[in-house]
Amino acid sequence: MAEPSRIPLDRLPTPCLLLDEARLHANVAGMRAHLEGLGVTLRPHLKTAKSLDVARIAMASPSGPATVSTLLEAEYFAAGGVRDMIYAVGIAPAKLPRVAAIRAGGADLAVILDSLEQADAVAEHARASGDAVPVLIEVDADGHRSGVAPGDRDTLAAIGRRLAAGGAALRGVLLHAGDSYALSDPAALTAAAEAERVAAVTAADALRAAGLPCPVVSVGSTPTARFARDLTGITEVRAGVFMLGDLFQAGVGSVAVEDIALSVLATVIGHQRTKGWIVVDAGWMALSRDRGTARQAVDQGYGLVCDMAGRPYPDLIVRDANQEHGILALRSGSGAALPDLAVGAQVRILPNHACATGAQHDRYHILDEEGRVAAVWPRINGW
């Protein structure tokens, strides 16, 4: 971790990625307190952060627990001392040797799966290697993407038995309520969290009834984590984007705009005054092409534009973006005044999707409470 003398933002090359450390700490503390009040452990998902420095703030200890979404993340965090991890993407058989290498280095890396074919591959690997790879069965919380139906007792039991026959270790069940991302009503989000809990407990009970172990019952998404009111039967919650926040989650209601810790610093490079445009040097290569808020009640374009203190300008968004050019303009129908931003002025842009915007950058410039750069934290990308 580099520690520059506290430098002002106007000395940074743009575009670049900023992270407000105080907001990051507050977001983590708030989620941890909420989940501890419900009697469960937070297993932070590091797919958004992709940074050991952020991980050490988010995790309960330097060794974990943690969730990852790529094996590169698992390798990177393992090298940094993280020992308790779940690779929360369905395992491809060809990746098992890489999983084995990470585990051989001392990390307790678990994998997930939802089919007999995957179970057979893991069992064969365990049989041949002698490595009792820990496995969680992915269960479908809401029809969003993948997983065994929670009421499909036969398939759950069959997967568990095949794993056991090969010497793999059945560790439990894992769910992700992806449909919660399409919601915004608090009552509906609370109901989604309860549906996720019920699905998880149903699947866990099915395994136990079949005489199979299920010590871990893992659920998680930022919306359901935030709106859960009862987590009886759950052992841990995985969530990640809440740490940094983004406009999509603000549209869901999982975070407030003022909680968003991530922004992109950009410089004004021109104007099209007759069109009401301000042009900056941050296009979709710096912001990402994610337009998820277009499906929400408030369309934030490619990002919400803020002043250097992180305060949003009224109705000023990145209306359009090319590869290296961002077009700032007022929302259609707005009565706000376009701010007077001269060439060379800087702005901060809040992202639609923290994961996608972060993936465009290899480092965070860490802001202190005075808005100066206190450190540079590396982050990784890739698989």
Rank of each mutant, 00 (worst) to 15 (best):
A192I: 03
R161L: 13
G166Y: 06
A193P: 01
L183S: 00
D179W: 00
G166I: 09
A204H: 05
Y181Q: 08
V198P: 03
R162H: 15
G160C: 10
A195W: 01
A182S: 12
A192R: 10
L156T: 04
A191C: 02
L174V: 15
D185T: 01
A188Y: 01
L175T: 08
L175Q: 08
R161G: 01
T190H: 01
D185V: 09
E194R: 14
A168R: 07
V198H: 13
A177W: 00
V173L: 13
G166W: 10
A168P: 02
A203H: 07
A164C: 05
D185N: 10
T202V: 08
A177T: 01
I159E: 07
G160L: 06
L183K: 01
R162L: 14
P186V: 11
T202R: 13
P186H: 12
G172Q: 08
A165C: 11
G166K: 06
A191Q: 06
A177D: 07
S184G: 07
D179N: 13
L175P: 04
E194W: 10
A164P: 07
R171I: 07
A192W: 00
V201L: 12
G166Q: 12
Y181R: 14
R162F: 13
L174G: 04
H176M: 14
D179G: 09
A193M: 04
L174H: 15
A182Y: 01
A187L: 13
R162A: 12
R197M: 09
L163I: 15
A177N: 01
S184W: 03
A158Y: 05
R171Y: 05
L174T: 13
S180V: 00
A199C: 06
A165K: 14
D179I: 00
R162I: 14
A164F: 07
A188I: 02
A199I: 02
I159D: 08
A204F: 11
V173S: 10
A164N: 08
T202H: 06
D185P: 00
D185I: 00
A199F: 02
L163N: 12
G178N: 12
T190P: 00
T202S: 03
A193W: 06
A187H: 13
A157R: 04
E194I: 12
H176K: 09
R171V: 06
G178Y: 10
A157H: 03
V201Y: 13
L174I: 15
A168M: 11
D205S: 15
D179M: 14
A158P: 02
T202I: 05
E196Y: 03
L183R: 03
A168D: 06
Y181H: 04
R171A: 15
A192Y: 03
V198E: 12
A169H: 02
L174C: 15
D179P: 00
R161C: 04
E196W: 01
L163R: 12
E194L: 10
L156E: 03
A204Y: 04
H176I: 08
G178F: 11
A158F: 07
A204Q: 09
D185Q: 03
Y181D: 00
T202G: 06
A204T: 08
D185H: 04
